[in-house]
Amino acid sequence: MTLRIEPLPRMAGHLPFMRGRLARLDNVGPGMVVAFGLPSGFNSRSDLAPLAMRETSAYFGSHFNANMKSAMDIDQRQVLRSADVAGSMVDLGDLRPDPATGTFEGTLRRTIAQIREKDAIPLLLGGEQGCLSSVLAGLRMSEPWSNGIAALIISAASDIDVLQANDVACVVSASPEVPGDPAIMSLAIRDLRQRFESHVESILRHLGQRPVHVALDASAIASHWHGASTSAGFAGLSLSECRRLFRQLGVANIASLSITGLDPTINGLSLVKTGQRLLLTAILDLIYARLGVLERRVETPHVCV
């Protein structure tokens, strides 16, 4: 018998994020998660991160995978309502720099603002943490109310200088700086680890009802779990800690997400895709929690054995 009996699946080529629909801004609707790439990198090859993340995200496109009838997170024993995800994930493609300036700041700001104005959730793939000011500026443009916006920054770099009046931020970092500004809450990962529940409550209280931008930088994850960040550090979060944090943050008013700092050329010239897979596994919990597509826990029988 020959090995392949039917046409190969469409795994090759330029796959949209999580096998979602390729879309234009005009097609974006309320409640959608709108992925787009930022192919930018000054200090690293994080300009290649959008491609790397899209490629690895095909694995998580269970809602378009005919072989997987019912996706279940075996660790959490939760079932995904795949059909609801399929209609909610779109990909705009990669951002181009502003022709006038040759930089991404303006287009990034306007894109974030326009997606938010359609009551959808921007998901920025790639780039470096320096893009945060443009992301927050875009968020501010779309939020006319005066209560400000919030940022949850999970990164090795803990300095933040992008807030305006009424804005707040929470920085989760291995060794955070002590903030002089009461609007900034700094949380060391070792402290979070010791009293997880109470610290998450504090984070949620600090962020309040403001629209929250969640910025996950690859440097926040300890380097022994993946090496795909130019900032190596071994006091970072583990994937399970990151996922636990994101699951609990699902109740916050998440307005936008970004995954930055991934350099897929580290770790053997992309032969190894540990970094992008790990970051996407982490962010998936936040996306699913935000979309509300996770069903009840299915109990495991062997706890009684």
Binding site: S70, A71, M72, I74, D75, V298
Partner: peptide
Amino acid sequence: GIAGWVDGNDV
């Protein structure tokens, strides 16, 4: 050691 997303029907 099973990790991540699997087919719930298989489980």
